[in-house]
Design a binder for these strands. Structure first.
Length: 182
DNA sequence: TAAGTGATCTCT
DNA sequence: GAGATCACTTAA
């Protein structure tokens, strides 16, 4: 058995073109530590929100108090509250001043962005926190190699109001799960 | 298919 | 301040 490589992803990983980061996060592990409990789940679904021009992005109308983390350094959490009950977890990409982030939509058994944050106790407290062990949330590369053929690219979810052009961009990546035969 | 839920943003 | 909107989930 070969040694398992386990590497915590640093800022440099996220300070790259958003779509590349979005794609490469599939198969990485999101790790959350709360007190003594540690949860690690493999990321299976992501979406990119890239730049001022992206009409589906919170940043397309400019900077506001809420979306400020998107304008900051890469490798930082952008967590916001919506629909009166759900938290959404994003990871900021690109350099300071360029608003972009990756929405983590699913990981491990948590399918759906709001279920994921509920399962991992992710709230506003993590907003603006860098991904690092000391923050209690980080991302590891555990050496799992994903076959690109098993990653599906589709339009993003819930962004129809962004119009046909931006609403149809294939900015969503989904790992095709193995089917369990009965 | 639609209700629930409340912060945030835009427009008065 | 008021009204619309919202990167969703759950129960039918």
């Amino acid at each position: 058995m070969a040694l398992q490589k386990k590497k915590i992803l640093a800022r440099a990983f996220f300070n790259r073109p958003t779509l590349i980061v979005t794609r490469e996060l599939i198969g990485k592990f999101l790790v959350r530590r709360v007190g003594k409990r540690k949860i690690a789940v493999m990321i299976t679904e992501t979406e990119a929100y890239d730049g001022f021009k992206d009409k589906a992005s919170h940043a397309h109308r400019g900077q506001t108090p809420r979306n400020t983390p998107m304008f900051g350094e890469a490798g930082v959490c952008y967590v916001y509250f919506t629909y009166g009950m759900h938290w959404m977890l994003n990871i900021v990409t690109r350099e300071k001043g360029y608003p972009a982030a990756v929405l983590i939509r699913g990981a491990g058994e948590h399918v759906g962005p709001a279920r994921l944050t509920r399962g991992l106790s992710i709230t506003k407290l993590l907003n603006g926190m860098p991904l690092a062990q000391k923050s209690g949330i980080w991302i590891e590369d555990r050496g799992i190699v994903i076959n690109p053929r098993n990653v599906k690219r589709t339009p993003r979810v819930g962004v129809d109001s962004a119009g046909p052009v931006w609403g149809n961009k294939k900015y969503r990546f989904v790992l095709q799960q193995k089917r369990v035969k009965k």
